[in-house]
Nucleic acid binder design. Sequence first.
DNA 1: CCAAAAGTGTTTGCGTTACACCCATGA
DNA 2: TCATGGGTGTAACGCAAACACTTTTGG
Lengths: 239, 239
Amino acid sequence: MHGYDKHAFEPFAVTVDLAVLTLRAGALHVLLVERGQEPYAGRWALPGGFLLPDESAEEAARRELAEETGLAGVSAPHLEQLRTYSEPGRDPRMRVVSVAFAALLPDPAEPHAGTDAAEARWTPYDAARDLAFDHDRILADARERVGAKLEYTCLATAFCPAEFTLGELQQVYETVWGAVLDRPNFRRKVLATPGFVEPVPGAARLTGGRGKPAALYRAGPATILHPPLLRTPREGRPA
Amino acid sequence: MHGYDKHAFEPFAVTVDLAVLTLRAGALHVLLVERGQEPYAGRWALPGGFLLPDESAEEAARRELAEETGLAGVSAPHLEQLRTYSEPGRDPRMRVVSVAFAALLPDPAEPHAGTDAAEARWTPYDAARDLAFDHDRILADARERVGAKLEYTCLATAFCPAEFTLGELQQVYETVWGAVLDRPNFRRKVLATPGFVEPVPGAARLTGGRGKPAALYRAGPATILHPPLLRTPREGRPA
DNA sequence: CCAAAAGTGTTTGCGTTACACCCATGA
DNA sequence: TCATGGGTGTAACGCAAACACTTTTGG
């Protein structure tokens, strides 16, 4: 146990895989890349890559994200470690242990200016099926995690630009949860939580081109949401 | 990206580390092993070990747990993957990426019948300090995760034996949270959650030697707790 | 009879829901 | 002036916190 005999352990390849999520046109999208080589050549996959000798998994994830999106370094998007996938057969060629992350970006992320030749594309979550390796599972885990974390953390702001309206923030919840929230109640709940959002004094912006300009807010320092904003399936029948 | 050139990646050692938690005498305890070799010789550490060539991290964790406690295979304790620690300097000798788990056991787990010569010992959580490597951090993360998961999952039963009383279940919450809960309200909440616990018909047991015998319950099939059982800081004297 | 622990009942208050209404802007 | 989206107010309901009370055991 924790011995250091060079033959006491098997060498593994360690990679990171990224479920890069954003919201565009009112739907959850994920960044996929097309594989150029076997196995799974021609199939879509989550972006990812090997850990370099002197970087942590988090650093590798941030580097891959920057390479893949071309801009991620600037806005420092939210990175969330999901879990590590280590089933022996998950890569048909060799033993690969993969640390999976979810990355949350505000919409206007440039489509894909990847340094790699492989094509990269924003894909609606519901259309991302039959991915390479166990990436279907990783992507499903990412969505589940993000959906759950919206309930009891302030994570939703990670999908918003630096300055956003409460309507935009509400759309994050409604899109990820597939539910409809009551605007007045949502507003109260968010504003009643200290440190969730901070008003940008005097600023306002039109959202849909029409309507009253909305006040702008910035993400606050709070990270946990207490009491939580529960995902109440308010659809269909009034009980 | 996901290329297979043998020199495209650096080989890493992959290990699992285990925060094995239980409740004894009304306090959270963790299983620690004393290291026999450098680095950190003589220091206490979380049990763990290298992944074997053909096992997943989960399988390795279960194997180590069985080796360390001598009984874990029978009761199949709850295993929870925490996260993966991969900072380059976390092991002074070599590059080790470690997948950390929390394991939750009912109290009467035999102290330690480890196959290794190294001593193993149940230690109160508050006394587990200055561990080897980054194990202080891993242990703190484990406690945080377990505390949080009690709120919105049915995880608490993992600390209980197969049949338990509601009073014992309540003590799990009170011990992990360091809070005092109202017994009637706790009872109602638990019984009102479908699938959290199932009554054992006719069975009853005395708990403190005195008092009315309590009805016995088994863990039910439910895994998530909705609405959650919130950790409300209600002032009470700590036991 | 007393202490201790399980279990039941009931009141009260706060948080949330649901919905009515007003404001500001573009077309 | 209408449609659209932002923002305010408020009544009603429901859950859950708080606590009084009963039950069953050992000493």
